[in-house]
Design a binder for these strands. Structure first.
Length: 507
RNA sequence: GGCCCGUUCGUCUAAGGGCUAGGACACCACCCUUUCACGGUGGUGAUACGGGUUCGAAUCCCGUACGGGCUACCA
């Protein structure tokens, strides 16, 4: 008996990959790793009308960035391929036909216009969304109402038709969800979903069941928005493969935006990323921002996603991926939806930046600076800077604001912050500081600081009165790490140069 | 409208019948820091409502309210 845990993430390549999608990937990945199982990525591209150029490659890019690589997929290979449903088209028809033979499904010849008409006629105050169900199926054009010869004739003539599931009249369908426990539905309110479309492609409902079976999926995790269609899938499992073969389901709580299910619109509206990486719609050219480009570390992104709906029962909030693999459990996943909080997301990133050493940060920070035109040719120089400023960076681009002055003289010097209290005495003080710095043999922050303070004392100046001016001379404003640390890294020549420059502008 | 899922500080959550309902983000105050941060200490702030069950309910049950999802030949 094969008991290998096999899970799958089954996105439809129609656009960017958002938070909820990545979290589903993450939970799949964690579950698979923890059980030494296999994680499959299946592309659900059964809707040809929704094909989007580049969307599939984009999904793989996102997973790679997150470090959540599948074991089997279109690009990783595997024994259960093809992993693109459009390439599995032949598989589905036979199952649909089998259902028809067994009396669990039927052919339907209704045209889109006829369906619209049916909905139009049945629409009312009490029934705003009429369904194709037991109440109307006997009045429609299908193999339930047509004579057998007529059905055969229509099929032979190539009249477009679909296959619909025949939902039983009054039956209680229930299953045990790993997160919610027992969930049940009354079939009388479930409609006869299309299984096989007129173009021969399966709908999600058929495809998910057939492929989960063929790919030997043991646990199926998906968003809560799928819960209402679960009875259809349960019934299909029962009719086709047997409920004992059905994977265990877990319907993950939704990630909510400021109002309702998080959408990419929310991101644009409230100024936070929703997709994992930048996504540009190939048709409209519209760009939707991603966490990566916004300046998140993949570790932080994973961490914050893991905690959006799950916790290990302790107060711990910072987790490495390996730790999550060890500690994750589906029964500690919350059943209620979780509102995404961008402030908290940034906090996670900040924590990860602080916890990462300069070497780890280097490949992220260097491009940030270079993109802004700063020349980074000495990595050990940059390493010192990263270590010095990282605790004040929440997002990667903050590294620019916190360290540009190490690479070039500040363009703007906040003279207004020093001018009002500027005087001859301070002018003379800095002249002496320059002379002292020129002679200093070691050029170390601690020495610089003690010399600076001694000179101040000798001139009867409070250090506080000259420290801020000194800072502004070096960085241009009231920000940055310790001013003597800055001077040390800047070096003797540059430090003295900047003091002189500002002195000139002050006099 | 119908069906399904849900409901603990503003937000993410802990507490699986038993201490004063705990932590984190955010916010506020103070300390540290002669900048900005980091850090530290403290503070504001929650069991939706009504009924049961029980010696005892955030926790179990019922109802109500509210929120969300679904209701396509989309996934």
């Amino acid at each position: 008996m094969d008991t290998t845990v096999r899970v799958r993430f089954a996105p439809s390549p129609t656009g960017g990959l958002h938070l909820g999608g990545v979290r589903t990937v993450l939970y799949n990945y964690l579950f698979a790793r923890q059980h030494r199982g296999e994680f499959v990525l299946r592309i659900e591209d059964t809707d040809q009308n929704r094909y989007v150029q580049g969307a599939e490659a984009y999904i793989f890019d996102c997973l790679q960035w997150c470090g959540l690589e599948p074991d089997e997929s279109v690009v990783h290979g595997g024994a259960y391929g093809p992993y693109r449903q459009s390439e599995r088209k032949e598989n589905y028809r036979q199952y649909a036909e089998q259902l028809v033979r067994d009396g669990h499904a039927y052919y339907a010849f209704d045209t889109p216009e006829e369906l619209e008409k049916m909905r139009q006629e049945n629409r009312s105050e009490t029934n705003p969304s009429p369904q194709y169900d037991h109440a109307v199926r006997n009045r429609m054009k299908n193999s339930l109402t047509l004579k057998e010869e007529e059905v055969n004739r229509l099929i032979k003539e190539g009249i477009p038709h679909v296959i619909r599931i025949l939902i039983p009249k009054e039956e209680r369908v229930s299953f045990t969800d790993m997160i919610r426990g027992e969930v049940s539905f009354e079939t009388s309110v479930v409609d006869d979903k299309v299984l096989l479309k007129a173009d021969g492609m399966p709908t999600y409902h058929l495809a998910v069941v057939v492929d989960d079976f063929l790919m030997k999926i043991t646990h199926a995790f998906r968003g809560e928005e799928w819960l209402p269609s679960a009875p259809v899938h349960i019934l299909l499992w029962k009719y086709l493969f047997g409920l004992d073969k059905m994977p265990q389901w877990a319907h993950l709580p939704l990630i909510l935006g400021p109002n309702g299910k998080l959408s990419k619109r929310d991101g644009a509206k409230y100024g936070f990323p929703v997709f994992a990486m930048n996504w540009t719609d190939p048709v409209t050219g519209e760009l939707t921002e991603g966490f990566k480009e916004k300046g998140f570390l993949p570790e932080a992104f994973i961490n914050l996603l893991a905690l959006l709906g799950w916790n290990d029962g302790t107060d711990q909030e910072i987790f490495r991926l390996e730790e999550l693999v060890e500690k994750f459990s589906m029964d500690r996943v919350h059943s209620g939806g979780a509102r995404f909080d961008y402030e908290k997301a940034k906090w996670f990133n900040h924590e990860w930046i602080k916890a990462s050493n300069a070497g780890r940060l280097m490949p992220f920070v260097k491009p940030v600076l270079e993109a802004k035109g700063l020349p980074v040719n000495d990595e050990s120089f940059l390493e010192k800077i990263i270590t010095l400023v990282k605790e004040r960076c929440h997002l990667l681009p903050d590294f620019y604001d916190q360290s540009f002055f190490f690479f070039k003289s500040p363009e703007k010097i906040d003279l207004e912050a020093i001018q009002p209290k500027w005087n001859e005495q301070k002018q003379l003080f800095f002249a002496e500081v320059i002379r002292n710095f020129e002679l200093d043999p070691e050029w170390k922050a601690s020495i610089l600081e003690s010399n600076f303070k001694e000179i101040a004392a000798a001139n009867h100046i409070k250090p506080g009165d000259v420290l801020l001016p000194f800072r502004i001379m070096l960085v241009g404003g009231k920000f940055g790490p310790g001013v003597f640390d800055i001077a040390e890294i800047l070096g003797r020549d540059e430090t003295i140069h900047r003091i002189k420059e500002t002195l000139l502008r002050l006099s």
